[in-house]
């Protein structure tokens, strides 16, 4: 505990670094995966290719990815951009299948009905399909958020600062308190992100909450 108090400044700084590295990949991953997922949902011939590619990307080992990105992108090896791009690739890989499933799950009746009352294709996407895919997209995003916050620690191996530094340094010094501090920090960030996502979901998708409540009540009454 004394160590934590004595090093609070560093813990706080690395926590902020960690957050700064985690947020862009989550947002970018979402922005890239949603259109890809929609294409996979809408155009059957592309579905296999997109989903397989997503699955393959996720199997690339993190270190290999971080070391090869500077060569591909022409960035410096210590540039945090490498971590952001790498994490974005993982986020897309994780989310693209969920996004395709989310659009698949939109009821055909509702889609038909939106066509029948005069929605054109663009407004139908933004005002009907995207919000109705929202609950499934949100659950996918929660997984991506937790996974990104934990994977960002790998960046420390190539010298990009995050709470992962405490793992490496604690290991070198055989100092469990430091490692434990890193773990707690990562968990706290992950939980806070998750709560934020749930809160955003409540605000943007109030109807989903209502529908779930009703379903639960219905099941309760049937039992």
């Amino acid at each position: 505990m004394t160590w934590v108090l004595a090093n609070f400044g560093q813990i706080w700084r690395l926590t902020l670094d960690h957050i700064a590295l985690s947020v862009p990949p989550i947002l970018l991953g979402f922005l890239i995966a949603v259109p890809l997922g929609w294409i996979a949902h809408r155009y059957a011939p592309f579905r296999g290719a997109i989903l397989t590619l997503g699955g393959l990307l996720y199997t690339i080992p993190g270190i290999a990815l971080f070391l090869s990105l500077p060569v591909i992108l022409g960035t410096r090896i210590l540039d945090p951009i490498n971590v952001v791009v790498g994490m974005t690739i993982y986020a897309v890989a994780l989310l693209v299948r969920t996004a395709a499933d989310a659009f698949d799950a939109v009821s055909g009746d509702v889609r038909q009905s939106s066509v029948a009352i005069g929605y054109g294709p663009v407004r139908r996407f933004f005002e009907v399909e995207l919000p109705l895919a929202g609950p499934v997209l949100l659950s996918g995003l929660r997984v991506v958020s937790a996974s990104t916050v934990s994977l960002v620690t790998i960046g420390s191996l190539i010298g990009v600062s995050s709470l992962g530094y405490f793992f490496l340094n604690g290991l070198n010094r055989r100092f469990p308190t430091e490692i434990f501090t890193g773990i707690v920090g990562v968990i706290v960030i992950a939980v806070v992100f998750d709560l934020l996502l749930v809160l955003i979901g409540r605000l943007l998708l109030p109807w989903a909450h209502v529908a779930r409540q009703r379903e639960r009540r219905g099941r309760g009454a049937a039992a």
Binding site: V110, S113, G118, A211
Partner: peptide, 21 residues
């Protein structure tokens, strides 16, 4: 077609209401 549909009322089975509105 889109303009045509907007000036014709359409009612379907299971209401077809938008669940998020």
């Amino acid at each position: 077609p889109v303009k045509l549909r907007r000036r014709i009322g359409y009612v379907m089975q299971n209401s077809g209401l938008l669940p998020h509105r």
